[in-house]
Design a protein around this nucleic acid. Structure first.
Length: 137
DNA sequence: GCCAACGTTGGC
DNA sequence: GCCAACGTTGGC
């Protein structure tokens, strides 16, 4: 099993939309590096969902429930989508600032390469973010 | 709203 | 194949 972090502009599609919908097609990715990561996802992989822009926090955990397929929003076969299923919401969202000041998380793509929208996490990084998200208040 | 970082495009 | 110009993203 692998671990990932995906970014979304909450005005386009937010974590709360995923909570409501139960699952969604993660489409519209138009960056080769992000696309390559989508192609590496396998069913059951854990995916943290981050809001860019004004919220800048990880809100919870989703799971890959359908591996990559042609992005339905384009006929261009370069681009793929996956389907994600809601898994669990954090007690407290984990902010970008918290992650930046955490030693374990110094090398995550979110900090190192702020424009990449789909990135892998190590198990240590994944578990640290989940730990922060499930801590009390 | 500004700007840094980065990706893409196109002229040569 | 290089690189300048341009567009987009996202943090501040």
């Amino acid at each position: 099993m692998s671990f990932w972090l995906v970014k979304s502009d909450p005005e386009t599609y937010s974590w709360f939309d995923l909570v409501r919908d139960g699952s969604t097609v993660w489409d519209g990715v138009r960056n080769y590096q992000a696309r390559n990561n989508l192609r590496l996802m396998t069913a059951g992989d854990k995916v943290l969902v981050y809001h860019s822009n004004f919220e800048k926090s990880v809100f919870g955990i989703a799971e890959v429930n359908r591996e990559f397929f042609q992005d339905p929003t384009t006929d261009d076969s370069n681009w793929v989508a996956v389907s994600l299923r809601y898994s669990e919401s954090f007690n407290v969202p984990v902010s970008l600032q918290q992650m930046k000041s955490n030693e374990i998380l110094q090398n995550i793509g979110l900090i190192k390469q702020s424009r990449l929208s789909v990135m892998p996490l190590t198990v240590e990084e994944y578990e640290e973010i989940v730990r922060l998200g499930n801590s009390k208040g």
